[in-house]
Design a protein around this nucleic acid. Sequence first.
DNA 1: ACCATTCTTGACAAGAATGTCAAAAATAAT
DNA 2: ATTATTTTTGACATTCTTGTCAAGAATGGT
Lengths: 200, 200
Amino acid sequence: MVGVRQFDEDKVLDHVMEVFWRKGAGETTMADLASATGVQRGSLYNAYGGKELLLSKALGRYAERWRDKAAAALDDPDPQTAMAGFLGTHMERMRDPINPPGCLVTGVCMEQSDFSTPISAEIEAQFNATEAALKRYFEAAQERGALPADRDPRALARFFVATTRAMAVMHKAHRGSLEPVEDVAKVALTVLGRTADLSG
Amino acid sequence: MVGVRQFDEDKVLDHVMEVFWRKGAGETTMADLASATGVQRGSLYNAYGGKELLLSKALGRYAERWRDKAAAALDDPDPQTAMAGFLGTHMERMRDPINPPGCLVTGVCMEQSDFSTPISAEIEAQFNATEAALKRYFEAAQERGALPADRDPRALARFFVATTRAMAVMHKAHRGSLEPVEDVAKVALTVLGRTADLSG
DNA sequence: ACCATTCTTGACAAGAATGTCAAAAATAAT
DNA sequence: ATTATTTTTGACATTCTTGTCAAGAATGGT
C-alpha cells in the first residue's frame, strides 16, 4: 500500500451500521454517515462508492455479527430449548442498550419498494438462509423423534423466522421496552408444547 | 361553501394511502402524491398542510378501513375461531392484489426514529388499541371458561398483535407471496390448541 | 531525498424536495 | 350581474443531497 487509509474500516462500518439501523436506510444521508464516522464524505465515496454499497456492507456485517450465536442455539437436540436459544439470541441483541431498537434487516426490508435491487436480493437471501437452517433443524428433529411427525417443518421454520421479525417490530413499536417482546417470545415457544422458558 | 374543492377527498386519501403504503413514508414526496392523485402540489398543501398531516390522515383511514372487520371476528366465543378470524382479516387484506404488500402501519412504524412526533403517537395508539381489545377478549374468554386460567391474556394479546406484524413483514419479504404468510398464521393459531383452520 | 501512488479535503455543479405566494379561476350568495 | 370567498395554478426561493473533481497531504519503495 502506498497512500494508506486513515481510518479503521471495521469501526467505520460499525458506525455506519448503527446509523442505518437507527435512522433507517432511506433517511440516512452521506452527511450523517460522515459525521457519525468522522470520515469525510469524499473519503466515504472513495472507499465505498456510495450509500448503496455502504448499506450492503452494513447488512453483511449485521448478519455476520449474530449468525454464529443463532446457529449455536440449533445445536441443542430439544426443539423447545433450541428455539428458546434462537429467539434468545435476538432478545440478547435487544437487551443491549447499545443497539438501536428494532432490527436493521427487518427495517430495511420494510422500506423496500423496488424488489429488483441488490439490497432487496441480499435481504431475501438472509431471510431464506435462516428459514432453511430452521427447516433442516426441524426435519432432523422429526427423524430423531423429537418432534411429532404431523408438524410441518417448513411452516415451523417460517413461523420462527417470522417471530423474530415480530419481536423486532414490537421492540420498535414499544420504543425499546422489553416486556412486550418477551411476552411474544414466551407465547411463541408454546407452539412446541407448553413449558416455555427464556433464560437470560 | 364558496370556492369549492375540485377533487373528491376520499379518493385522494385513498391514493395517498396507497402511495405511502407502497413506497414508504420517507421515500414518498409531495410530487409523488400530486401525480398519484392528479391534484397539484400547491392544492395538497392548501388542503392538508403538508406531508406530515397527509400521512396522519392516511394512517387514520387505513385503521378505520379494517377496524370493523377485525372487531367483528372477536364476536365469536371460541378463542381459536376468533383468532382465526382476526388473522384472517389481515390475510384478506394481503390476498387482495389491489393492496401493496406489507402493512402501512407496520411500515411506517419501522421507519420512525423520532418517537416524539404525532405520527409516532398515532402508531402507538393503534397498536395499543388492538392489544387492549384482544386482551379484553381473552380475559372474557377466561371468565367464560373458554380459555385455561393459566394463560396470560396480555401476553396472548401481544402475541397475536405481533403475529399480524410478522405476517406483514413476511408478506413484504416474500414479495407478496401468500404461502409463507399462511404458514405463519397457521402455526400461530396452534398456541391456542392444535386444530387451526384459516378459512378464506 | 525522491518518486509514484493512494488517500484526503474542500469546493463545485446539478438535481430534487420543500414550503410559500400572488395571480387566475371558480363558485355561492346577494 | 356583482361580490366575497375559496381553491387552483405555476412559479419562486431555499434548503438538502448527491456525485465528482482537482489540489494537497501522506506514505512505501527506490
